[in-house]
Write a protein that binds this DNA or RNA. Structure first.
Lengths: 404, 404
DNA sequence: CTGTTAGCGCTTTCAT
DNA sequence: ATGAAAGCGCTAACAG
């Protein structure tokens, strides 16, 4: 079949050298013939079919020849027959954020334990697709189900259940909530926020700022809601600032925060070293703001954190003397910054592994919806505060206040 | 087949609700029947078989029904028949390093342009497997070929060509050189080193240190060789320090560098903030070292860079006044560090995309080796120096020297 | 121009 | 305890 190809290549020297063996992979039938039994027997033996037993001698012989022929079941043929590929697709928004790395690792690990392979797809950064646009992976039988960590918080109406229409596509939303209930695997964001707030409240802080990604991102939204509730309950003032989940974004948000309540816009041009810092949110319509200025910045992502620290530094604010900082994203590098940054470490690997379990449950149960309803899962693994040097009590003498 | 499963779930209320349609995906034969032609005709039309034409009316009708049935070719069946899966496997060592992220992006992008999907596999960090251990992906027909970026520099003898034995497995080494020649896709590391050395040499530096990963990593090895050659050629002293490609490693290597030639080991305990800093290399047997102390640190990876900066800071050395620093890994966050760090930006995305092209060439040519030999590829895209504030001339008055 | 025929490699009743 | 037969969904000769 590939004769023309081969022919065009054979007109070469060394025509008698041991030609790169073109022998194709060993098949079930090769073993069957070698052993002198039928393929179905080989199949049963190799798959450890518990139903019936085989004569110990054939059993032995089959395994032996399989091993010596280096037999590998053809995943394609098997999948075609079994109607199951043994692959999961994991759709990730922006590979650059380290949280996905950890999450991925947990997922990969667990999937392989359960006999699945994971194919990772990166959502094109420029135009985020709705989750339904990954249906094709299942419809084309490339994967049995979808792990969705797409960037946008999916409005209930927009994509409402279209993922499970027609051919029901097994899927779970990872670290996000999808439009329909019952397919979400998330962490305890409120718990993380509470840990953080309790920590700084205990130190005497009375006003905190939360700098996080766009509120269209579900995690961000959940953190914001939790923060509002918790701070209200503890009588702590909260200022929320949304910005891109980038260094730039963190920088810009911090600028906004620092210039809050400062009606003179004549502040020196605090710009990021070699970038422009576009202001993404509509101008703060409640400015000038007379609330107590925050003495703590909680930052939603590592990337933003770099921008926040830089902006604080540029404004001449010392951390933690003038401003405490906490990252909601743990990373090894935090320990090595000029001011080592305290963070909340989330159970990311557990999230990844739980998501895989949840997805496999949906795949293997066959019929979706209804009874035995898998339901949403919230990772119960405890998060922890990684104490470093970016948090202290509020600036001396003015608990909860900070001078200009 | 899934009857028992389903049955156990049917004993529920709402037995009359529009049960989640179990209709399975539309097949070729469904379209054929709807249109009233044979499946082969449908197949030809849908695949745009250039050989023959069809009556425009059937052509139209086929496309129309295909679209309205939401037809998706079953990748499994197709692959089984065509003996090609349309998938590539990308084996990556440690997802945490940002360079793989960029590389991945380039690869994903290009692969999808060429009609392939990429499944990413992460090599278990603890015990790196030899590349040959990923053969199974091809042998089981899960992928058509392998993009290998495994962590270890493969000794020529160890794995000698075993990847192409028996069933020849199409593969390329990405950013690495494999045991056999002809399957490597790499960047111009010497060029990067030259760019860096020329830059600092032009500023008057005469002694530079290269802090990089373990020399078992191929990139590291190539950079070291290039650095030795180039520095020798320019009369510049070079000190090479290997350490783990982590923050810890960078910290430890810097310690070693700073204590070089200081026979008194009574130096204060410069330890990383909250880690131990194990010394990985055998003690420097040529100590005490009387060469001119380096006035520039070139750092091989972003993770190490954090450790290097921290160690310099802890030692009371100002950057760039006392020591210039250059990262061989560009990343947005470098612009936001307390001292923004100059770096060499490598064409990572191009590398990823070139690797995909190279692999596809090997896959589609059928017969490996011999004529039309694809050969190694070196990415020609230019790298560039991203100038920030971590580089200055050598400490005043002592060109190329630095005080203790 | 289009239908027939034969599988790809494997699993799975159903016989024996 | 094992073989026969059917078929997953698609493609590719080869006929007409």
């Amino acid at each position: 079949m590939t004769d023309q190809t081969r022919a065009s290549q054979m007109t070469q020297d060394q025509p008698d050298q041991p030609r790169p063996s073109r022998r194709r992979a060993s098949r079930l039938i090769d073993i069957a013939e070698a052993v002198g039994v039928h393929t179905s027997t080989v199949s049963r033996v190799l798959n450890g079919d518990p139903a019936q037993s085989v004569r110990p001698e054939v059993y032995e012989k089959i395994w032996r020849t399989a091993r010596q022929q280096g037999y590998r079941p053809n995943a394609l043929a098997r999948a075609l027959k079994r109607r199951r590929t043994g692959a999961l697709a994991f759709v990730i928004p922006l590979l650059r954020n380290p949280i996905w790395v950890r999450l991925q690792r947990g997922a990969l690990q667990r999937a392989s334990e359960r006999g699945y392979v994971v194919m990772i797809m990166e959502e094109p950064g420029d135009d985020p697709q709705p989750p339904a646009s990954y249906r094709y992976l299942v419809e084309e039988s490339r994967a049995d189900g979808l792990l969705l960590a797409t960037s946008l918080r999916i409005p209930a109406h927009a994509d409402g259940g279209s993922l499970g229409r027609l051919t029901p596509v097994p899927h779970v939303y990872v670290n996000r909530r999808g439009p329909e209930r019952g397919n979400d695997v998330v962490m305890d964001e409120p718990g993380a926020v509470r840990l953080l707030v309790d920590h700084v409240a205990g130190l005497g802080h009375r006003s905190v700022a939360l700098i996080d990604g766009p509120s269209a991102v579900d995690t961000v939204h959940r953190r914001e809601m939790a923060a509002r509730r918790i701070c209200a309950g503890r009588g702590i003032q909260l200022t929320v600032l949304h910005a891109d989940a980038t260094e730039e974004g963190g920088w810009a948000a911090t600028q906004r925060l620092l210039h809050r309540g400062a009606p003179d816009h004549s502040a020196p041009d605090h710009r990021a070293p070699d970038h422009r810092a576009p202001d993404h949110r509509a101008p703060d319509h409640r400015a000038p703001d007379h609330r107590a200025p925050p003495t703590v910045c909680a930052v939603g992502s590592l990337n933003q954190l770099f921008g926040v620290m830089a902006a604080l530094r540029a404004a001449g604010l010392a951390v933690p003397a003038d401003m405490s900082v906490v990252s909601l994203d743990e990373d090894e590098c935090l320990a090595f910054l000029d001011v080592p940054v305290t963070s909340v470490a989330m159970p990311l690997a557990e999230l990844g592994s739980a998501a895989v379990d949840a997805l496999i449950a949906r795949i293997e149960q066959g019929e979706p919806g209804e009874p035995g309803e898998p339901g949403d899962v919230m990772i119960r693994e405890p998060m922890s505060l990684v104490l470093r040097q970016s948090v202290a009590g509020p600036p001396a003498g003015r608990p909860g206040q900070r001078g200009r």
